[in-house]
């Protein structure tokens, strides 16, 4: 990311205030002011909108905001991104067609909107599908549009299985696919394991990656059969497993994070199974410990959640091994 200039820093502050006060008019004013001053759209998106949005997520994580407050602030960021989109749609189309989508179960629509906007600013003729796109709908658009590129945003580990479906749909039609988002972590390991054509850490690198995509790609290789079979079984029994964990985990229900924590834990196991990358498991343990600490609960409950899950997953050999070797026995605060 480029160093922020002074007006951009001021803008970031003003934009964050607009999100915190849910003041759409003020947020639009900041974004439109920057664009009018010639700040490139992708810089506005990356250094102002996306940066501020990360803090929105952090405020929920720290327990400062409810989910509704987080969503209200996000809606303001969405409105601001739409303003940037209106601006970039006036620029000429100089490249091919790009389809931008969120995997099914991915409800964070903003990152995909930002990527859509950044690609449009770079001259792509983009089509944006909204939050949680079912694979059938994606397939329909792939055939109807015949895009030169597909970009998929995935922030939730639980959406990685359908992201893999998207990779299959795209590469079966020979269409290259660039993926990105928090669920992929800080490098291309998971993207590569799932068979994506390219991985991007942020909007500018997504723009760069899209420029370098090959015209036609080969069908993605199948994933290891035992791991995918076990992940599919876990997915089928997800509600039941989550219910059992909820019943045994000792965290005070008033803390109100059990559902998120348990879902995330199971999803981390899915991710590790599909990608062979175990990092989501200890990271999820740490994330839960942070949530607990921020809400004045005992962070060591994160450790016991792993132990409960290990017991529940005794009939899932790969997952059991993953958990018993990667879920931390103690969490640093």
């Amino acid at each position: 990311m480029a160093e922020l200039t002074v007006p951009e820093l001021d803008a970031l502050g003003a934009f964050e205030l607009a999100l915190a006060t849910v003041d759409t008019a003020a947020a639009l004013q900041v974004v439109e002011g920057l664009l009018a001053n010639g700040v490139p759209p992708v810089v506005v998106l990356t250094d102002v909108v996306a940066t501020a949005q990360r803090n929105v997520g952090a405020r929920w994580q720290r327990g400062d905001w409810t989910v509704a407050e987080e969503h209200a602030a996000t809606a303001v960021a969405v409105a601001a991104t739409e303003a940037v989109a209106r601006h970039v749609r006036q620029l000429p189309v100089t490249r091919g067609k790009a389809l931008v989508a969120c995997a099914e179960r991915e409800w964070h629509a903003l990152p995909a909107m930002i990527i859509d906007c950044a690609l449009r600013a770079d001259g792509w003729d983009t089509t944006l599908l909204g939050a949680s796109t079912p694979p059938l709908r994606l397939g329909q658009y792939l055939q109807d549009l015949g895009p030169d590129a597909l970009a998929v945003s995935c922030s939730m580990l639980g959406a990685l299985p359908t992201t893999r479906r998207f990779i299959e749909a795209s590469t079966t039609a020979g269409i290259p696919i660039v993926v990105g988002g928090a669920a992929f972590g800080p490098d291309d390991v998971r993207a590569r394991a799932l068979g994506a054509t390219a991985w991007a850490a942020d909007a500018p690198s997504a723009v760069q990656a899209a420029r370098e995509l090959p015209t036609v790609v080969q069908m993605a290789e199948p994933l290891p059969a035992d791991a995918t079979a076990e992940q599919a079984t876990l997915e089928l029994s997800h509600r039941e497993l989550a219910g059992r964990l909820q019943a045994v985990w000792e965290v005070d229900p008033a803390v109100d994070i059990a559902e998120d924590a348990i879902n995330q834990t199971l999803h981390a196991v899915w991710a590790a199974l599909l990608t062979g990358d175990v990092r989501p498991i200890p990271q999820t343990a740490q994330w839960i410990a942070d949530l607990l600490s921020a809400r004045d609960a005992d962070p060591r409950h994160a450790v016991t959640l792993g132990q409960h899950l290990c017991t529940e997953l005794r009939d899932y050999p790969l997952s059991h091994t993953l958990l018993s070797t990667s879920w931390p026995a103690a969490v640093g605060i």
């Binding site: 490098d187 291309d188 390219a198 991985w199 500018p204 760069q208 990656a209 080969q218």
Partner: peptide, 10 residues
């Protein structure tokens, strides 16, 4: 690869 790019094919 630090910020992204195409994953090479055989």
């Amino acid at each position: 690869m630090t910020s992204g790019g195409t994953i090479p094919d055989d």
